[in-house]
Nucleic acid binder design. Structure first.
Length: 236
DNA sequence: ACGTGATCATTT
DNA sequence: AAATGATCACGT
């Protein structure tokens, strides 16, 4: 049977089934082919195009959340994340989630937070990302869907609450990348000199480094392992 | 200027 | 080698 090249969708997927169908057509294809079919040039490397792979997959899957702090497939409540992996399926980078909030801090709650909104339902798309492989030859993997289990949500929530407590206390500039078991707070800005203002409770404000929440590679590695190597196994 | 898409590059 | 802190491009 002839292999039909996929076509760029013009509309978001109507349901998760359509999203899975689109992803299935991309699995096993290389970035060079997908970029060419989309009419986009591929640079030699990602040093000046760090978001290129994510943006390319957004186009191929019909994601349209723009830069809003909402899931990519807004009507489905599903967030798209590409996951750079090596040949063993091990993540090579942390995963950016969303900006760390610096205003209306009193009212924030885990269940209504941007982190929870983004991670409640994630479509992970592994992408071959070893630097030795030319960008155009890197292969798109099998996508998988993840909803945090009760235990996983508790891990995320505990880190989020811990970070928020420090932010509310005015200690955001003291948070280190080593803080948090699965969810980190790290700089997220144009440069180290970029400054924004945190609106702390009781109308205090303070100059602050813009930061983002990130998932540690060890956490996403666990998700990959669970999905691809533990699926369907009987419980002990 | 800010948030999302992330990876880069230096330190540990 | 892994992790942390720094950085690049794009759309709005």
């Amino acid at each position: 049977m002839a292999v039909t090249p996929p076509q760029l969708p013009s509309t978001p997927p109507e349901d998760i089934g359509e999203l899975k169908t689109r992803a299935q057509l991309l699995a096993g294809r290389c970035l060079g082919q997908l970029a060419a079919l989309a009419g986009l040039p591929l640079p030699a490397d990602l040093s000046r195009s760090k978001g290129l792979v994510g943006n390319l997959l957004e186009r191929w899957l019909g994601a349209r959340a723009g830069n809003r702090p909402l899931p990519d497939f807004t009507h489905l409540g599903i967030e798209l994340k590409t996951l750079p992996v090596d040949s063993d399926g091990k993540p090579l980078q942390s995963t950016y989630v969303t900006k760390v909030p610096l205003c209306d801090l009193e009212a924030l709650e885990w269940r209504t937070s941007s982190v929870f909104a983004k991670l409640r339902h994630v479509m992970w798309v592994p992408i071959q990302a070893e630097p030795a492989v030319p960008l155009a030859e890197r292969v798109v993997g099998q996508a998988f869907f993840w909803r945090p289990s009760a235990v996983e949500e508790q891990l995320l929530c505990a880190d989020w609450e811990y970070h928020l407590a420090r932010i509310r206390a005015g200690d955001v500039n003291a948070i280190k990348g080593s803080d948090g078991a699965v969810l980190q707070v790290r700089p997220k800005a144009r440069s180290a000199e970029t400054i924004t203002w945190a609106e702390l409770p009781h109308q205090r404000t303070m100059p602050t480094r813009p930061c983002g929440f990130y998932l540690r590679p060890s956490f996403t590695e666990y998700l990959v392992q669970r999905y691809f190597f533990d699926a369907g196994r009987p419980s002990p």
